[in-house]
């Protein structure tokens, strides 16, 4: 199978999955107890106004018409209007995407930069102090709930280190806005040469990214370690040694590379954990991203907004996993041949 065919197949599967996600979200809304109109205008509202609202939101149509409308809307990128603020859901989702994306990417980068070398050291110095240290760290890392870790980091930085946390680390954003986004900060740096905005951004994202990244750092460390130990035991390593290849080259070019290939797939699947983690990290740090907005929508039972956010997250998950599969297929020549 060529790589193109392979991708087309994965894309078709992805479309099916997204359709399933949309359907499940619609079904959940349909079985949800309570009249959605109440959520919009309040239970004490005039029945006439309520009817008007039901008409406006299409709530009087038969269920299958609502479903078709709903799916159509989703396909055209129209996620409806928020019950609470009457704003377009699409806009409400999109304006929150950069913050979450920046957080998730920063966390992933931190995780990979720390975890891969740690895993390599751990695997190459098995049963030495460095290995024990890395093992202990990764055990703690996968066992610590990240909301608690976030609070403890705030405690550490703000209370014990006596940092003026509101000004320096800036955990809270009173207007629900970050002082500066990554894109703007980079633009400022490029156009004016002023690096202050970027530094501010780094300061703000530091603790949330560490909080979110710790679990992944720990997990990738474990995977790298055990994967490399497995890989070192394979006959081809001995054969490569026999032809005189220096040890460093074997370790990185052959063993680490072959270890990373399956880890990439696992990471794709663990993306859900990353997004779930982002939701709760954002809550702890008041980070104005999708997760923060999702919790607001849940508390207000704002169905369209909630659906919009969840479908969007699922879409991202599916797309990234297709990308991961494509990467996997190019790295491991056996995949497309099976």
């Amino acid at each position: 199978m060529s790589i193109g065919k392979f991708l087309v197949k994965r894309l078709l599967q992805g479309v099916l999955v997204i359709w399933g996600v949309i359907t499940i979200m619609f079904a959940l809304r349909a079985v949800s107890p309570g009249d959605p109109a109440n959520l919009i205008v309040g239970p004490a509202a005039d029945p006439e106004i309520r009817d008007q609202v039901r008409e406006q939101y299409g709530l009087n149509e038969p269920i299958y018409v609502q479903y078709v409308d709903y799916v159509q809307g989703m396909i055209t990128g129209d996620f409806g209007y928020s019950f609470q603020s009457s704003r377009e859901v699409t806009a409400m989702v999109l304006e929150r995407v950069p913050a979450t994306l920046e957080l998730a990417i920063a966390a992933t980068i931190i995780a990979i930069v720390i975890a891969v070398p740690l895993g390599v050291i751990s695997a190459s110095r098995r049963n030495e102090p460095a290995d024990y240290g890395a093992t202990l760290f990764s055990l703690l890392g996968i066992s610590t709930p990240n909301f608690w870790l976030g609070l403890m980091l705030i405690l550490l930085f703000a209370v014990f280190l006596q940092d003026p946390m509101e000004t320096y680390l800036g955990f809270t954003f009173p207007q629900g806005r970050r002082p500066v986004g990554f894109g703007e900060a980079v633009m400022t740096l490029v156009t004016t040469g002023y690096a202050g905005d970027l530094l501010t951004w780094v300061r703000h994202i530091m603790l949330p990214a560490i909080t979110l990244g710790t679990y992944f750092t720990a997990m990738i460390t474990r995977l790298t370690r055990s994967g490399m130990i497995d890989e070192f035991g394979k006959p081809y390593v001995t054969a490569t040694e026999a032809k005189g290849i220096p040890y460093v080259l074997i370790r990185y070019k052959h063993v680490l590379r072959n270890t990373m290939i399956p880890i990439i797939t696992v990471l794709g699947l663990q993306l859900g954990t990353l997004i779930g983690g982002a939701v709760i990290t954002e809550t702890v740090f008041n980070w104005p991203g999708l997760g923060d907005r999702l919790i607001q929508a849940l508390n207000a039972r704002d169905w369209p907004l909630m659906q919009g956010i969840i479908v969007f997250i699922a879409l991202g998950f599916v797309l990234i996993n297709i990308a991961v599969d494509a990467l996997y297929a190019t790295l491991d020549p056996r995949v497309t041949n099976e």
Partner: peptide
């Protein structure tokens, strides 16, 4: 490699698959 080299029993597992 230069003075000594070796061939192994199982060629399939003696090459890096990737």
């Amino acid at each position: 490699g230069t003075s000594f080299s070796m061939i192994f029993q199982d060629p399939e597992s003696s090459f890096n698959p990737s």
